[in-house]
Simulated assay, not measured.
Amino acid sequence: MTLQEISFTSANGRDTVQAWVYEPVVPATAVVQVVHGLGEHSRRYLHLVTTLLDAGVVVVAGDHAGHGRTAMESGVWADAGDDAARVVVADELTLQAKARALLGDGSLLPWVVYGHSWGSMIARAVATDPEARLSGLVLGGIAAQMHGMEQVLDRPALAALATGDHAADPAPAELVGQLFDGFLDRYGPGAGPTAWVALDADVVADHARDPFNNFGAPLSARFLQGFVDLYDQVNGDDWYAHVPADLPVLVLAGDQDPVTNYGEGAYHVANRLVRSGHADVRTRVFTGVRHEVHNEPTTRAEAEREITDFVARVTDQPHER
């Protein structure tokens, strides 16, 4: 494996985004850009990265503004500046452009984006940008039909807090709680605050103690607003109309994951894609597991196989962009 680092100024003008390009020892056949989720970082995908490298795939991955090493460097957590919905998408497009320049001839390889959770929202927005030139889109732990987002969150109250001099202040716990409303309802009494992440207790514990995760960092009001804005954008009617009709899509989820409405959100997005003229859509909802199907010991190998098989297929059948 060859590892190269990339850094660049975020679209927010404040942070220096930290990113990495992992290259296999064998001739590469494709590139996968990994887009991590809320309150985590890209190195939590190292098992998947290794699997992709073994399959001859280049991996590009960075830490978003307010997250991971990017936040370690800036000292600012859970905030991406003003207009966070635009910033995080713009940063992924910049990372792609810089990685393409770094890879030289490798930039001509089929390019797949894999986004998990919040990253699935960012990836969906990236997919509609003509500059992305994607050959495939993988959406894991897809954020769709979220109960708190669509039925509980006091949106006017959030909008009022997300503008003005105090927009960078932490959002009230009540509003954050509304966003995650019902996340623990299926897990019984005594479930920890992040029990929704995984069924396996060790995965949940690792998620909680990882200092580059800092999942409990208070979300700024403007960041929370950006999260809502991006969710609305990629779950709205216009998104389906702007996704290239010939773009292959793979959707992965667990049927005990509240982020995906317990798997129903995954089917909802996939079915709407098909109804809007996207013929190449595969959905896999894993039984009995929660949010991180790519980290859950019982589903990790199968989830990785779904991704590597998908990448291999779109490599064999390149699409013009």
Rank of each mutant, 00 (worst) to 15 (best):
Q96Y: 06
D105F: 01
S120H: 08
P170E: 04
A159R: 07
L95S: 10
A97R: 13
G182W: 12
L102R: 13
D165M: 05
K98C: 03
E131M: 07
L153A: 14
G106I: 07
G115T: 11
D181T: 07
L95I: 04
H166P: 10
A97S: 15
P130A: 15
A101P: 03
A159M: 01
Y114I: 10
D129K: 14
S117R: 04
D91Q: 09
D165C: 10
G140D: 02
G190C: 13
V126P: 02
P193A: 08
V112A: 15
D169T: 09
L103M: 04
K98E: 13
P110R: 06
V126D: 04
L184D: 04
L102D: 13
P189K: 11
H116S: 00
A101D: 08
L93V: 00
H116R: 02
L158E: 03
G164H: 09
Q145N: 14
G140R: 04
R155L: 13
A157G: 15
L179M: 11
V89C: 08
Q178I: 12
R100D: 08
A191L: 03
A160K: 07
L109N: 05
L161Y: 11
D91G: 12
D165A: 11
G141I: 00
A125G: 08
Q145W: 11
L175A: 05
A167T: 05
R133E: 08
P172I: 05
G140P: 00
